[in-house]
């Protein structure tokens, strides 16, 4: 362990904040990875409740079924790292004001589900928060094909992508690939906050 590097990272992450749109398969796993890394503050936005079928990939437990995802996720984060400040917003993001909850964070993570809402979100963040880095993901359904995943960088947009994946309506959502891409997103967040790991 490089103690000097670890301390530098600890201090930098402690003063950093990340906003996550969606607390499902991507969002819950991104939040946990960042909490474990020692992020200072998370802003979590979701309106949904934990359902039994979410447990195949989302960072929740059986006894949390029926709870609001943001409440359940905050509990789980606090059990791992009580020092993370967690701001939760029980709202459904809708066109025209999607950037609102994320105006003060250092990095925004897109962790939404339908193609339509993902597209709207990416557009709105790029347009209304042009100086805030955005980490998005596309193509999380299916299993295997890990080597197809790559990062597409375009200005402030950092997209974790499996461009050949099928839509979730036509495929399955399972922990390995969803968590792989969520952690890929979290890793991109660290890269953005800390700079390239040389």
């Amino acid at each position: 362990m490089n103690i000097e590097k670890s301390e530098k990272i600890r201090l930098k992450l402690k003063e950093s904040s990340v906003g996550i749109a969606g607390a499902g398969g991507l969002g819950s796993n991104v939040a946990i990875a960042l909490a474990r890394s020692g992020i200072g503050k998370l802003v979590l936005v979701d309106f949904d409740k934990v359902e039994e079928n979410n447990l195949s990939r989302q960072y929740f437990f059986r006894d949390q079924i029926g709870k609001l995802k943001i409440h359940a996720l905050k509990e789980n984060i606090k059990r791992i790292n009580p020092d993370v400040k967690v701001e939760i917003l029980d709202i459904k993001l809708s066109k025209k004001n999607m950037q609102k909850p994320f105006e003060d964070v250092d990095v925004v993570v897109e962790a939404l589900d339908s193609a339509e809402i993902k597209t709207c979100f990416v557009e709105e963040i790029l347009e209304k928060l042009p100086n805030t880095p955005l980490v998005a993901a596309t193509g999380v359904a299916g299993y295997g094909n890990s080597d197809r995943i790559k990062t597409i960088h375009s200005g402030n947009l950092n997209l974790c992508a499996d461009e050949e994946a099928r839509s979730s309506e036509d495929d399955v959502l399972l922990a390995p690939k969803v968590c792989l891409m969520a952690n890929w997103q979290a890793n991109l967040v660290l890269e953005i906050l800390l700079g390239e790991d040389k």
């Binding site: 193609a115 999380v140 375009s154 969803v178």
Partner: peptide, 29 residues
């Protein structure tokens, strides 16, 4: 690197030598 809003796809002319990113978001998250 500049976003082209969807409602401008019909009118925005692609300049020569430009670098275009077309990003397709697939359902699932």
């Amino acid at each position: 690197n500049e976003l082209v809003p969807r409602n401008k796809f019909n009118e925005k002319i692609v300049p020569d030598n430009s670098k275009i990113a077309v990003i397709h978001m697939i359902s699932g998250g």
